[in-house]
Amino acid sequence: MTVDELRAALRGVPDPDWLATALDRVAAEPATIARFFPAVGRRCGRDDLPDLPGWTADEAARALLLASLPADHAGQAETLYRTGDAAEKRAVLKALPLLPIGAAGVPLLHDAIRTNDTRLVAAALGPYARQLDPPAWRQAVLKCVFTGVPLAAVADLDARADGELAAMLAALAAERRAAGRSMPADATELLDRLTAASQPEPREV
């Protein structure tokens, strides 16, 4: 995802002038972002963007506002997340991989993954989750399975899933079987893929 793609996908918002003005103002006067950020849903809409699967108009516009800051992206992202409602927090999480902040946004991921708001948990597991260490990432993936977040929300799932995650999923599957409850199909499929990958190659006889 790039800033240009976000910008292109937002061409059809209900009030494009408002967004253009807001982006200019934020670039010139960073402190004004605090005023524009909460109003985005009302001005740009909240529907899914047809050209940008997985993004809503308010998320994309807020991500653009953050990206147009001239400096201190990490500090502003943290403030906007801490003072944001659920939709604002979600937008900050989705914007993180677009910002020049290194690993500075990781505490926000930890906060989001601790919540029980599945929209936040899912938003924390996008491309920026590459900054999470393996134990935190595995716990977050398992939390998705627990709370019904589709694993399609998890970036780099197959590349990062390892034997330890397979063991955790297998234990959960056993627990669910014992309780007469089912596993989400996408989790079972992931476990099957991990199990198959860990089998030794069949020897030729």
């Binding site: 708001d117 599945t118 929209r119 589709p150």
Partner: peptide
């Protein structure tokens, strides 16, 4: 207020997001 959002999606959609509560949390 100009902020009341009563779109149908919000009122009727039984989204995936429901499960953390409907299932009793993680």
């Amino acid at each position: 207020s100009g902020r009341l959002d009563l779109t149908d999606d919000d009122l009727t959609e039984p989204t995936f997001a429901g499960n953390s509560i409907l299932r009793g949390g993680s």
